[in-house]
């Protein structure tokens, strides 16, 4: 939740320029930034880095992406922290069994948006949501929605790995246990399957009873992914899952994301544009609470439709 507080304060600091926007916030804001970024790069233009696509891990093709059913469909989503609006009229479809990346500078609302998808924002006292979010056509915000059921279907991995101070096995067993699974043999089966899925099994199979806190940072994060998989979710939300990890661990997590997308719909928030380019099929660029542009990842990175997106991905601001 630490990220949250930080993001929140950043968006508060951003309020004055936002107030300018009255009729069409999107346009006003864009002209502002473009101007800002131009002054910033008044010197010699930085060379435009081509995004690195990994040929060993092909992204979904444009046809596949277009053909995929929308697992989550968001329309006209507005989000408020008290009087401050953090998200403006978000409209986005998240295709099934694809990786969707949210990119954008700090405080742009991407994490807030991610947390709307499993209603983790419910726990913030003065937060308010307007608009529609559909999971398989069913509204997340209906009066009879059971948040507990929702979160079993939409799992989450946090920025900072947060294993429970229990054994590795108990960490995985937590989700199934609260869901009512009592059979120890079944729980071990689930633990083995999830740890294998999270590419951690070989490293921990002989010490499932050891404390999870004894694992390295990268292992802890993979454990958190395994733990999220144990409730058998359909969607996996990842809030900067590799930002606190070293390059080797990051690579492992990215490999894992690529493997998991055959089975799960994955949404990943990342600060690292190279990472977005490497792992995602669809990319959505957020800026100051507005979804500026969303589309196939190679399209966004090679041929962005908006000047603002281009400025951000070429590193001219953010």
């Amino acid at each position: 939740m630490v990220t949250h507080g930080a993001e929140r304060s950043i968006s508060l600091a951003d309020t004055p320029p936002r107030r300018v926007a009255t009729t069409d916030p999107r346009q006003t804001r864009m002209t502002e930034t473009t101007a800002a970024s131009r002054t910033e790069t008044a010197g010699p233009l930085r060379s435009i880095r081509p995004p690195a696509f990994d040929s060993a891990r092909p992204a979904r093709s444009a046809d596949e992406l277009a053909g995929a059913a929308a697992k989550i469909a968001v329309s006209d989503l507005n989000f408020f922290y008290g009087a401050n609006q953090a998200l403006h009229d978000i409209k986005l479809a998240i295709p099934e069994r694809c990786v969707t990346a949210f990119i954008g500078p700090s405080g742009c609302g991407k994490s807030t948006f991610l947390r709307c998808l499993n209603r983790m924002n419910d726990m913030i006292d003065d937060a308010r949501v307007e608009g529609e979010i559909l999971l398989d056509g069913e509204s997340l915000r209906g009066p009879r929605v059971d948040v507990v059921e929702l979160r079993k279907r939409v799992g989450m991995v946090f920025q900072k790995s947060n294993p429970f101070p229990k054994s590795i096995f108990e960490n995985i067993a937590y989700g199934p246990r609260v869901a009512g699974e009592r059979n120890k043999a079944r729980l071990y089966e689930i633990a083995e399957r999830c740890l294998q899925h999270a590419a951690l099994w070989d490293e921990v199979k002989d010490r499932l009873e050891d404390s999870a806190l004894a694992l390295s940072g990268g292992q802890q994060q993979r454990l958190c992914i395994a733990r999220a998989l144990a409730t058998d979710p359909e969607v996996l939300l990842m809030d900067e899952p590799a930002s606190a990890l070293d390059p080797a661990s990051t690579a492992r997590i990215e490999d894992l994301i690529f493997e998991l997308k055959d089975k799960y719909t994955i949404v990943i928030v990342t600060h690292n544009m190279q990472q977005a380019a490497r792992v995602s099929d669809q990319t959505a660029f957020f800026f100051q609470g507005v979804l500026v542009e969303a589309g196939a990842t190679n399209e966004i990175f090679t041929n962005p439709a908006k000047k603002q997106t281009e400025d951000y991905i070429t590193g001219r601001f953010g």
């Binding site: 507990v148 946090f158 989700g175 609260v178 144990a230």
Partner: peptide, 23 residues
Amino acid sequence: VPRDLRSAAYALGATKLDVTTRV
């Protein structure tokens, strides 16, 4: 007890009672 742990438990579909008694 770190809030991260509570968030982790809630994200796994735990109720308030689960979070309190098991985490």
